[in-house]
Nucleic acid binder design. Structure first.
Length: 772
RNA sequence: GCCGCGGUGGCGGAACGGUUUACGCAGAGGACUUAAAAUCCUUGGCUCGAAAGGGCUUGUGGGUUCGAAUCCCACCCGCGGCACCA
């Protein structure tokens, strides 16, 4: 009697798989490439938590399934290690993040190894290694040279806790995406990427990709396309006019006043327009308020003031007042609107409060409205450009240089990359609009790459989300120091066959990575999926969130579940299966360890069945039983759809029948289906039963539809749709036969009480319903 | 406010026009054991009943259908996205 000892098996097989390169595809010659990608982890000091283990396992089960089905599966792993999380932890323990990242890295790779995932370890990468961020910097330069990166002074988001600016995508409901602190505004000069140039393509591209609908909707909302019109309103007694944007040109005849944003009013003031004293005061107040408060956070009472100027409604030719109010936003449309209180709730509120006229003029056709007002069709997007500079230390330095002599920004020469992030003793965020690197002349003092004069290096670093726009490309060729990746490999492996990651990246990473891919295509730096506008990940599924006691796991809540103890007590196979069994990968759930014993019981039964009862698993033992064929079909289909929980339950049912029905299907099919879930035990059994090959290259068992047929089935007998009896009958029984049997049943006779059914519904292989 | 997703036993979840609760956990009863653990067998929605058997049950209320968790309408609750974007 040999005992199942998971820990011993894991220790034995892990090095053998590595040595035999079982999970390393031939990147240059693979004939059936399948790029199985999982969003790489953003490592924290605590290591992997149980939720990430579940996702990695789910992705790995899928990858193993594909590999056994004959695909050359490429399943790389790396660390998205730059960023504030890692930096803050390093600050806390008073170590340089560069130093500490090595500790974190080791711990992550140890844990990821323990799970038994079939990673292509040879291609691993870390975004903070100079060999990697060299390409982050290279990308910045390419985008700059193409006019897609620019510097601008603007009102930007500032996180007072992270002490850096943030992109719009990193502000969730007015709070910092990372730390949850309320975001404030700052007027400073920053680097931006022109993602808005791609707004329409990012929107249209969603039509042709297989993504979770939820994520597509989030992206559509975020891009926020509005079709409307731009219309000029002449200002009374003046040569000037205002441009307004509206999505409702059909309401033009009801426009009874105009409203402009305080920012636009300020510009008018600066240009010397005559504006009332009251209005001057209001503008000043409104602009001051803006800097300290996010005005999207809550609905608030509208404020405003009459500008002293009037405009002419181009459709009605009537004179209407121009008001100033901060309910009109700067930076969207033209910063000026025509107000139609009869058709817009906000305009109505404003009109109501300030006793402005309301007109119930009839609607006209959309195009007629534009024509009557001599306007033009115009589309606006809510999407703003991506703010990519950060005032922190732990990121890729932005490879730009300010040269006084050239009076401009000059990109670093490509051959000088990477611009190394210097080892400095003081890397705390400064809390100003400068990064800590601005305190190190030895870093920023340089000469101009163009004219050679003394010049100053940019001291901000790149947003970490920039790092993660390239990793899937770099995985293909992580040691290549001539180019970001080899075009040939990219054509072979891209677009990514399956991408799985967190739904929280709906408008963060998943939007950025699409934008950068399209930009690389336009720059002729990438060439794949041309027929799909360079969409890098045409198949994406979001995994569910694993909570603990109903709350998101976080260190501050103290509810982070560390997987290590489960690995050591139950083993990787049991933990993998348990996490896969709890719900479909796309659903989450609350983590509870109460059920894991059930999986251990199951694996022990498998072990006893094959090892202690010495089953023959040679290929000559063909699958003969209909349940086995049905199970192969179900498991195959479930796994294709990431429904690992029901696949496992089918295997459980099959095992029970195998145990009860002696050697009905004691061949390898069952083990092969179990292998993606429990790679260690299945490999060991394979070896014990005499196989010299790894189980993990398949082949995946095949089912035969003809052999799935049963001889009999349970006929359900209903009266008026209620189940009254069941009886086992021949599979091909016809309506007459079923009726005869049904009517002969004692229970049915009693229930019918001597009356004949008025109508009979017979569903072959299922039921007969006697309707009275 | 707009858009989307979801509400099924004590719990995770199955089923997605045809026996609601597969599979697993927890529970109850039993076997083995001096005892416990482990293992195995039986049981397993709620309710009335000694039992046979009946009634009720997929958030709530209607509807369609021989038959509804599943389709349709209205509502309630939860989660997610957008939100003074004209």
């Amino acid at each position: 009697m040999k005992k199942y000892n998971p820990q011993a098996l894991e220790k034995k097989w892990r090095p053998i798989w590595l040595e035999n390169r079982v999970y390393e595809p031939d990147l240059d010659h693979a004939t059936k490439p399948f790029y199985n990608l999982m969003m790489f982890p953003y490592p924290s000091a605590e290591g992997l938590h149980i939720g990430s283990v579940r996702t990695f396992t789910g992705v790995d089960i899928f990858g193993r399934f594909k590999r056994m089905n004959g695909y050359d599966v490429f399943q790389p792993i790396g660390l998205d290690g730059f960023g504030i999380n890692a930096e803050n932890y390093a600050l806390k323990i008073n170590k340089n993040p560069k130093e500490h990242s090595k500790v974190t890295e080791e711990n992550y790779y140890r844990q990821l190894g323990v799970i038994g995932n079939s990673f292509a370890w040879e291609e691993r990468l870390e975004t903070y290694s100079p060999e990697y961020y060299r390409w982050t910097q290279w990308l910045f330069i390419k985008l700059y040279n193409d006019g897609l990166a620019y510097r601008k002074k603007a009102e930007v988001n500032w996180c007072p806790k992270c002490l850096t600016v943030l992109a719009n995508e990193q502000v969730i409901g007015g709070e910092c995406e990372r730390c949850g602190t309320a975001v404030t505004k700052k007027d400073i000069e920053q680097w931006f990427f022109k993602i808005t140039d791609y707004a329409d393509r990012l929107l249209v591209g969603l039509e042709n990709i297989d993504w979770t609908e939820k994520i597509k909707i989030a992206q559509r909302n975020w891009i926020g396309k509005s079709d409307g019109a731009q219309i000029k309103f002449k200002i009374q007694n003046s040569k000037f006019e205002i441009d307004i944007f509206t999505t409702r040109p059909d309401t033009i005849f009801g426009a009874t006043f105009c409203v402009i944003s305080p920012e636009l009013a300020q510009k008018w003031l600066t240009a010397g327009w005559t504006i009332s004293d009251d209005a001057r005061v209001y503008i000043k107040e409104a602009l001051a308020r803006r800097v300290t408060r996010d005005r999207h956070v809550e609905e608030k009472e509208k404020t405003g003031v009459f500008s002293g100027l009037n405009a002419i409604n181009p459709a009605t030719k009537k004179e209407i007042p121009i008001w100033i109010s901060d309910y009109v936003l700067d930076g969207y449309g033209t910063g000026a609107i025509m107000a139609v209180p009869a058709h817009d709730k906000r305009d109505f509120e404003f009109a109501d409060k300030f006793n402005l006229p309301i007109s119930d003029a009839p609607l006209v056709d959309f195009d007629e409205g534009i024509q009557k007002a001599s306007g033009v069709r115009k589309t606006n997007y809510r999407l703003r450009d991506w703010l990519v500079s950060r005032q922190r230390y732990w990121g890729a330095p932005i490879p730009m240089i300010w040269c006084d002599a050239c009076a401009g920004w000059i990109p670093e020469k490509e051959e000088n990359l990477p611009i190394l992030l210097p080892d400095v003793h003081e890397f705390r965020p400064t809390g100003t609009d400068k990064s800590p690197l601005a305190n190190f002349p030895e870093f920023y003092k340089t000469s101009c790459p163009k004219c050679g004069a003394d010049a100053r290096r940019e001291t901000d670093v790149c947003d970490t989300f920039l790092d993660s726009t390239l990793y899937y490309l770099r995985y293909l060729d992580p040691k290549n120091n001539k180019e970001l990746f080899s075009q040939e490999r990219a054509r072979r492996w891209l677009p990514v066959a399956s991408y799985i990651g967190g739904p929280e990246h709906a408008v963060l990473h998943l939007l950025y990575v699409r934008f950068i891919s399209k930009a690389l295509h336009d720059l002729k730096l990438a060439d794949f999926a041309r027929d799909n506008d360079g969409e890098p990940m045409p198949h994406f599924r979001a995994h569910g969130l694993v909570t603990k006691d109903g709350a998101k796991m976080s260190k501050s809540r103290g509810n982070v579940v560390n997987p290590d103890e489960y690995f050591s007590v139950y083993g990787a196979d049991a933990l993998r299966m348990y996490l896969a069994f709890m719900s479909p990968l796309e659903d989450g759930g609350d983590f509870r360890d109460t059920g894991i014993k059930g999986i251990t019981r199951f694996l022990t039964r498998v072990w006893d069945y094959y090892v202690n009862e010495a089953r023959d698993i040679s290929a000559s033992n063909k699958v003969t039983n209909s349940l086995a064929h049905k199970t192969i079909k179900k498991v195959t289909e479930d796994m294709e759809g990431l429904q690992n929980n029901t696949a496992i339950s089918s295997l459980m049912v099959l095992l029970t029948q195998m145990e009860n029905d002696n050697d009905a299907f004691a061949d390898a099919s069952f083990l092969l289906m179990l292998a993606p879930f429990a790679p260690f035990i299945t490999e060991e059994i394979f070896a014990i039963r005499g196989s010299r090959e790894t189980i993990h290259k398949g082949p995946w068992p095949k089912y035969d539809v003809d052999k799935m047929a049963d001889d009999v089935f349970e006929l359900v007998i209903q009266i008026n749709g209620k189940v009254r009896d069941t009886v086992s009958v021949a599979i091909n029984i016809d309506e007459d036969g079923a009726r005869t049997i049904a009517l002969s049943r004692d229970k049915i006779k009693v229930a019918l009480d001597g009356k004949d059914p008025k109508k009979i519904i017979f569903i072959p292989k299922r039921l007969i319903n006697l309707v009275q």
